[in-house]
Amino acid sequence: MAKVVVITSGKGGVGKTTTAAAFAAGLALRGHKTVVIDFDVGLRNLDLIMGCERRVVFDFINVINGDANLNQALIKDKRNDNLFIFPTSQTRDKDALRREGVDRVLEELKTQFDYIVCDSPAGIEHGAITALYFADSAIIVTNPEVSSVRDSDRIIGILASRSRRAERNEPPVELNLLLTRYDPGRVAKGEMLTVEDVKEILSIPLLGVIPESESVLRASNTGTPVAFDSESLAGRAYLDAVARFLGEQREMRFVKPERRNLFRVLFGKA
């Protein structure tokens, strides 16, 4: 049975699109047929992060409106056969994302894919609510910082009350915390909330910790999901998170300050 996974946060700039791209890539690497959908109508960016911006012909809104069919709009990833990208439209009409239309498209995607990863826009407006409405599972992307943690708490509340599962009295949306931009060095100095602090405050299961890493900007510069960079700490941390999502036990890595060895200093590996 296909699973709809929403990547959400409330606050902007915490790493939702990076996470959606990396997570979808990670699921595809594990052999699951995966599509990643951009819900940020009017501010399309997933295509850039996935490196397929020049291959966009039809988009999500075209398919909702019946101007194109699904297979015309889906972009097949060139690096992994299991991975597909579903870009959004650059229209300024935010209401173009009609709920019945989204429902119909998701139902069609469910017949073709194992995982449907929805990249939510920031905020709690129409696009964000539509992205989380159909979710079976949610990944709450949070930075160890006060405004991000507060907004995550708000989104957790909205998932519990306004998702379709909540409306239909079905089992609740499965919640997972993903802590991103974590800097173990600053945590050790008492300058940043610890993993345990955030876990305790939000009280949802921790899926993973992604360390602050230069490789994330490098990945977005080149249009490569960071999970395809298995050399980088962030890439490895995302692959761990995907493994945990699939039910495996993995020790939490990259949460302690790293000793800088000569190799890293000389070659600048992040």
């Binding site: 507060r150 708490d153 708000r154 945590v187 100095k189 008492g190 300058e191 940043m192 909330l193 602090d197």
Partner: peptide, 20 residues
């Protein structure tokens, strides 16, 4: 600034208790 994370945690706990 050694204790700023502890201050952040305390402030968050209070504001979230209220909002929840």
């Amino acid at each position: 600034h050694r204790h700023s994370a502890a201050i952040a945690k305390e402030r968050l706990k209070i504001v979230l208790a209220h909002e929840r």
